[in-house]
Design a protein around this nucleic acid. Structure first.
Lengths: 118, 118
DNA sequence: TTGTTATATAAAGCAATAGTTATATATTTG
DNA sequence: CAAATATATAACTATTGCTTTATATAACAA
């Protein structure tokens, strides 16, 4: 396998998060379930555009939709969110773990150069 | 102000993370500093393409570059990473905090419907 | 059943993005 | 100084993504 399927999920999820309208939708959903129209209301864009954004968010595993009569209430979804956080956390940990050593080396080199300058 | 400048940063950062090549570069950088050519080597794409990806990552605040002769060693950058994690964490917390209540309500309605069925 | 409401899909336009090749710039090395 | 190395920029193309309007579908209400 060339690309991990998890990685493809990350593709879709991060791409979904790259749009400010979609992040605003997620923020709104943090307060609880909302229907498509409720989600569309604060925005100046058309309802079909919102539907499309929701499809993207659902495809990315960031929300789920249930059926309630003619409504399709949306809610935040768990799994993907945790995976993304875990991935970012891996980077952050690596950063603090691997670069302190490097910083010391670089600082040392700087010091040597300063000495040479004299 | 209509849009928070933080939010624009998130735009750039999440968009940067949406590309698998760029995520692979970040993963590589988790092991420590690397030059442009070192970063380019594992990929089938051209060096200019890598330079462009690095520019995107730098613009997103995810890496920094220093000058070392003709090399431009890249390293992970902190701040943005933590902000993204914090944002995702906000969502995740809201999810567990606000939806348990809702789940109870929904489960309750389900139960009522089951009773009505009789 | 007819009108209305909630949402989805389709078609089309435009802007942004990632890739390419060719070339420029700066640094190192002989 | 000349050749080689490391990286950046430019110009161009192809693809993708967001938006819109128009229309379809499904549920509800009268």
């Amino acid at each position: 396998m060339t690309i991990d399927s998890k990685d493809l999920d990350h593709d879709a999820a991060f791409a979904a998060l790259a749009d400010p309208t979609r992040r605003a939708i997620l923020s709104r959903l943090a307060d609880g379930e909302a229907t498509v129209n409720e989600l569309a209301e604060p925005f100046d864009i058309s309802q079909p555009a919102i539907s499309r954004h929701l499809k993207v968010l659902e495809g990315a595993g960031l929300i789920t939709r249930r059926v309630d009569g003619q409504r399709r209430p949306c809610r935040l979804a768990g799994g993907t969110l945790e995976e993304l956080e875990a991935w970012l956390d891996m980077l952050r940990r690596a950063l603090t773990a691997n670069y302190n050593r490097l910083d010391a080396v670089l600082a040392d080199e700087m010091a040597k150069q300063d000495l040479k300058k004299d």
